[in-house]
Every structure is written in structure tokens, then in C-alpha cells.
């Protein structure tokens, strides 16, 4: 078949895809070409194309500061903790909801748990602010008082945020993952449990040897999807919730917020692009590695 016959037969397909292709070109592919900015010292008077090449100076500079290490560490550690929590907690929730005798109550709980998923990060930052504001916040004015503790300045206290952020993230996402796992559990054929009961397996044993193994493909797929994004942080969570408090940067600055700040707050587009490209490249490698790994474990669950 030649291209011409193809075009005649499938021209309508190209028309159908045209808006999408156009979008991808502008939204994704042209910006990819724009990564050359990372290798330039952009001077506005000369324009991007005519600005002098500095090759790896922006990268050298990025890795010379302690920032590169801090943002990489924060991004990875937070995301790893998120992935683990997003696996354990929802699986546990889903199993428990499934076992609950009162189905109406189970539905109600599920609905409430899911609610947080629909709130924007701006709303979440308001909710957190309501608790943590240092003079009016509920924690300082009530809880700390009941506990007989001195009020703390939560938005300056670097120690608590590494715990707080995973809690907030889990609280926000647990509903979504619970629904997915619950669906998978409900999909499990009752015959498996029937057989297990005949073998005299206790409830706990059934969960361990039937439910969890059968959930494994779902767990792997959902986790893999997150691992592929392990180098990308949830910008809203790290930007909105800590309210851009300077003293918290050592524990809240992630690659995404760094890219944003060096671009918008400092106007250094070369450095910002360098950090962005670093993120894209490492992210790219990590997707491949995790996919390769999953392929070895379970071929069907691999992304590609």
C-alpha cells in the first residue's frame, strides 16, 4: 500500500486527529525544542535565538549550589513516602470497607473519604491555615492549650512538615485509590473465597492469600504510574499549602517549585530551564527503569 492510498482511505482519521496533533505540537513538542534555553545565557535584547551559548554553565551553576541536592532529595523522599502511603492505606481501607457489614455505612464512609479528592489545593491550604495559623489557628489556640504546650509557629517549623505533607497528601488522595482498589476487590470471583473457606482459612488468611495476591496487578499498575512521576512533585501541595514560607524551603522546596521560583520570582530563565530539563531527563530515565523492572516481575502490567 502506498501513502496515497492510505491517505485516500484514512484521510478522515487525520482530520479527526488534527486538533489533538496541533495541541500536542504547541503544548508539548515546541516547548521540547525550547529546552535550548537551558544552554544559553538569555539576554532579552538579543532574543532567545541570538543569545550566546553558555552550554553547561547553567547546569554547573545549578549543581554548585546546595539547592540541586535539596530539591532532588525532597522530591524523591516525599514522592516515595506518598507512593507507599497511597498503596498501604487505600488497600487497607478498601479491604475494611469491603468487609463492613452495614453496606450503607460503607457507602457513606467511602463518599466522605473521597470528598477531599475534589477540593482544590487552594481550599486545602485554607483548611490547613485554619488549623496552623499561629495566632488564630485551632491548633495553637485550642489543642496546644489543652495539652499545656507553648504555641508553635507552624509555618516556620521545619521539623513537622516532612510529616505533615505526607499526611495531607494521603488524606487528599486516599479516597481516589480506595475506590479503585475496592472495585478490584469486588471484581474478585467469590469462588476463591469459597474454596478458601472450605480449606478452613480464617478471615485474615483469606485476605493474605486471596485478596492481596489478586489485587497485586492493580497495585502494581497504580504504583508504577506513580513511580513514573516520582521526579515530578505535586506543585499545588508544595506551593499552596506551606504558603511559600521562606524558612520552610529546606523541607518544602521541590523541583517543580524551584523551577517556578527561579523563573517567576527571580526571572532567571536559563537556570529555571536547566532545572526543568534535569527533571525531564531524570524522570524519563526513571520511567524506563521502573517499567523495565515491572516487565521482569509481571509482563502484563508493564506500561510499554
Amino acid at each position: 500500500m502506498t501513502l496515497a492510498t492510505n491517505m485516500r482511505r484514512y484521510w478522515i482519521f487525520y482530520v479527526m486527529m488534527a486538533p489533538g496533533v496541533l495541541f500536542l505540537i504547541f503544548n508539548n513538542y515546541i516547548p521540547m525544542l525550547g529546552t535550548v534555553i537551558a544552554f544559553k545565557n538569555v539576554n532579552y535584547a538579543d532574543g532567545i535565538i541570538n543569545s550566546p551559548w553558555v552550554w553547561f554553565d547553567n547546569f554547573k551553576y545549578l549543581f554548585k549550589t546546595s539547592d540541586a541536592w535539596i530539591i532532588t532529595r525532597n522530591t524523591l523522599l516525599y514522592n516515595i513516602s506518598f507512593i507507599i502511603l497511597n498503596m498501604i492505606v487505600p488497600v487497607a481501607f478498601a479491604i475494611m470497607l469491603n468487609e463492613m457489614k452495614n453496606k450503607l455505612m460503607a457507602k457513606f464512609h467511602q463518599a466522605v473519604i473521597f470528598l477531599a479528592y475534589f477540593l482544590s489545593m487552594v481550599v486545602v491550604s485554607y483548611l490547613v491555615y485554619g488549623f496552623l495559623h499561629d495566632t488564630h489557628g485551632f491548633v495553637n489556640t485550642s489543642i496546644m492549650k489543652w495539652l499545656g504546650l507553648e504555641p508553635l509557629q507552624w509555618y516556620f517549623e521545619t521539623k513537622i512538615w516532612p510529616f505533615l505533607l505526607p499526611i495531607i497528601n494521603t488524606w487528599k488522595n486516599v479516597g481516589y485509590y480506595t475506590v479503585l482498589y475496592l472495585a478490584a476487590i469486588i471484581g474478585i470471583d467469590d469462588e476463591y473465597y469459597e474454596a478458601a473457606t472450605i480449606d478452613g482459612a480464617s478471615k485474615w488468611q483469606q485476605i493474605k492469600s486471596v485478596t492481596i495476591p489478586l489485587l497485586m496487578p492493580t497495585i502494581i499498575v497504580l504504583t508504577l504510574l506513580q513511580i513514573g512521576r516520582v521526579f515530578y512533585a505535586d506543585f499545588g501541595l508544595f506551593f499552596q499549602v506551606p504558603r511559600e514560607s521562606g524558612p520552610l524551603f529546606p523541607v518544602t522546596n521541590v523541583i517543580d517549585t524551584y523551577v517556578y521560583r527561579t523563573f517567576i520570582a527571580m526571572g532567571d530563565i536559563g537556570l529555571s530551564s536547566a532545572a526543568g530539563l534535569y527533571q525531564s531527563l531524570v524522570g524519563f530515565i526513571l520511567v524506563f527503569l521502573s517499567n523495565w523492572f515491572v516487565r521482569r516481575v509481571d509482563k502484563d502490567s508493564a506500561l510499554f
Binding site: 500500500m1 492510505n6 484514512y10 482519521f13 486527529m17 489533538g20 496533533v21 500536542l24 504547541f26 503544548n27 508539548n28 513538542y29 515546541i30 516547548p31 521540547m32 525544542l33 525550547g34 529546552t35 534555553i37 537551558a38 532567545i48 513514573g228 523551577v259 517556578y260 523563573f263 530563565i269 529555571s272 530551564s273 532545572a275 526543568g276 530539563l277 527533571q279 525531564s280 531527563l281 524522570g283 524519563f284 520511567v287 510499554f304
Partner: peptide, 28 residues
């Protein structure tokens, strides 16, 4: 049966793997 299926699948899938970053995206 669409002959360029693979290419266009990859064309969109690749955007999940790699992106140009905030600055060029914003400038576009």
C-alpha cells in the same frame, strides 16, 4: 487497521515521558 496507529500512539505517549519544562511552555 489504521497504518499510522503506532506512530500517533507514540506521538502522544511520548508527551507523558518527556516535557520541555515550564519556561518554554510558558513562552509558547
Amino acid at each position: 487497521d489504521f497504518p499510522h496507529r503506532k506512530f500517533f500512539t507514540f506521538f502522544i505517549f511520548f508527551t507523558m515521558l518527556f516535557n520541555g519544562g515550564l519556561v518554554p511552555w510558558y513562552l509558547v
